[in-house]
């Protein structure tokens, strides 16, 4: 994994540690809290790609709500 991608993975995880679950809108607004990790264009596509990867790895869940996607960190992915 490139450093850039790894930083965005950490970005999402750090945000979800602060607010779990969080909508995409929440995540975009909280990127400022971790400027060294949340990298890429302000449109946020890089963060979304990192989030989708974490969903595939079973580390977080994503579900559709009236406010858009809600991302949730799974406390113990093996359970």
């Amino acid at each position: 994994m490139s450093d850039f991608k790894e930083r965005n993975v950490q970005c999402i995880l750090k945000i979800l540690e602060k607010k779990n679950p969080a909508t995409t809108k929440d995540i975009m607004a909280m990127r400022d809290l971790f400027p060294d990790l949340c990298a890429g264009c302000s449109s946020g596509g890089d963060v979304i790609l990192a989030g989708k990867q974490l969903v595939e790895e079973g580390i977080i869940q994503r579900k559709w709500t009236a406010e858009g996607f809600e991302w949730k960190l799974i406390s113990d992915p093996d359970k």
Binding site: T23, M28, G44, I48, E67, G68, F69
Partner: peptide, 15 residues
């Protein structure tokens, strides 16, 4: 302004 633009494209891509 209730939803982030990334969610809209994701909706049409996946939902």
């Amino acid at each position: 302004d209730s939803m982030n633009h990334n969610d809209i494209t994701e909706y049409f891509n996946e939902m």
